[in-house]
Design a binder for these strands. Structure first.
Lengths: 210, 210
DNA sequence: TGCGTTTTGTAGCGCTCGCTCTAGAATGCA
DNA sequence: TGCATTCTAGAGCGAGCGCTACAAAACGCA
């Protein structure tokens, strides 16, 4: 019973995500957003609210369609494999993006989270989801013997969350495969169960080399 | 042979560092800076150049007086102790700062480095210094037997650099001692040398617990 | 075909941005 | 005591900021 919307909301939202993702919150102007989304400022405010509200929605969409989908997919793999695939995909995604945007969630953690309690909570909640993904994988891997029991799932999961954040930061400064894989390889090696009476608790392919 | 400067340049620079550190580059205005530094815009531009130049100088000062000093200090400790102290201090610094500013260098890595080649190079160089601090510690520790030889110094150092970056990101979102120590504890445990024929290569105090 | 409702384009609001201009104040040297 | 030089204060430049007012346009429904 009114004039219908002329633009594709999903496409516009994806354009907004790309902008915020690449430039961050402060360095992105509403006019930049409207241009990329292919709509006018009036339509933008009418459909998505103000800049901060749009950012919040963009971040939510990014998390749900990007990260959330990944976690659900990895969850179906064997525990150890799930963790390794998660990190391998993060490396690939970082290297495949010529704009070096990194992970929008990690960017948000330093960009908007410190200055906005509501967004900080949102970011923190997603980090908790990632941590709990790790924790479930680790608990499963400890049960089937593929992951060391020398440390508690919670401890290892917190460590892996930290490694993930660090990986995504490093990827924006030094986007080289060797550097990124260097960050994760010891973390994966650490997960390997100890040999029954062996002297090394290290994954088969990681040999010491200078 | 001319009118002398009336303000304390070092104090003004420290004020600029605090501003940029807390708010980032984009969200800090030149007027904010001038107010905090206790000088006028004219004096600011006259003494420090434009906003970007001031940021660059502030970052350099931060690195030299903050991080650089810390690395030199830790370097004098026993290798294993140096690494542990580095991380412990990072945790303490993160928790002691009510403004949760994190590490200005890590903030810069996501804030300005991706959009400014020169600053990215500068950030990358400092990260390389941190990594080489870790590498020297690890090489030394492997010689005196305090650090595992199951992986090369370079590999472990890259991992620790990633952990440091992740730690500083997490500290801005979830500034809780337990979370931050949870990130670093497995990393430190991983450094422990294997028992001669033992089944666990884990530091004494880290016991498995759910 | 008019009516109520929502969207769209345009123009522009008040404000702040980074930065600069100019006049005067404060020095060392001649 | 002039002079050259540097610094300080204040006003203000053009531009862009986030955001909105307004009227025309496009619908479902009567």
């Amino acid at each position: 019973m009114a004039r219908p919307r002329e633009f594709d909301e999903a496409a516009a939202m994806n354009a907004a995500i790309r902008r915020f993702w690449a430039k961050g919150y402060e360095a992105t102007s509403v006019r930049d957003l409207a241009d990329d989304m292919g709509i006018t400022c009036a339509s933008l405010y009418n459909a998505f609210g103000d800049k901060r509200t749009l950012y919040r929605k963009a971040l939510d969409h990014y998390v749900e369609n990007g990260l959330g989908e990944r976690l659900r997919r990895y969850q179906r793999l064997a525990p150890r494999k799930a963790i390794a695939t998660f990190f391998a995909d993060s490396v690939t995604r970082s290297l495949d993006d010529p704009a070096r945007r990194g992970c929008m969630l990690v960017n948000a953690a330093l960009d908007v989270a410190p200055h906005d309690p509501e967004l900080r909570r949102a970011v923190s909640d997603v980090l908790a989801r990632i941590e709990s993904f790790f924790r479930r994988c680790i608990a499963g891997g400890q049960k089937d013997g593929s992951i060391t029991t020398s440390q508690a799932p919670k401890a290892l999961a917190e460590h892996l969350l930290g490694v993930h954040l660090g990986l995504r930061v490093l990827a924006r400064v030094r986007p080289e495969r060797a550097a990124l894989e260097g960050v994760i390889r010891p973390a994966l090696a650490m997960l390997a169960p100890e040999r029954a009476a062996g002297r090394r608790g290290v994954a088969s392919k990681s040999k010491a080399q200078e």
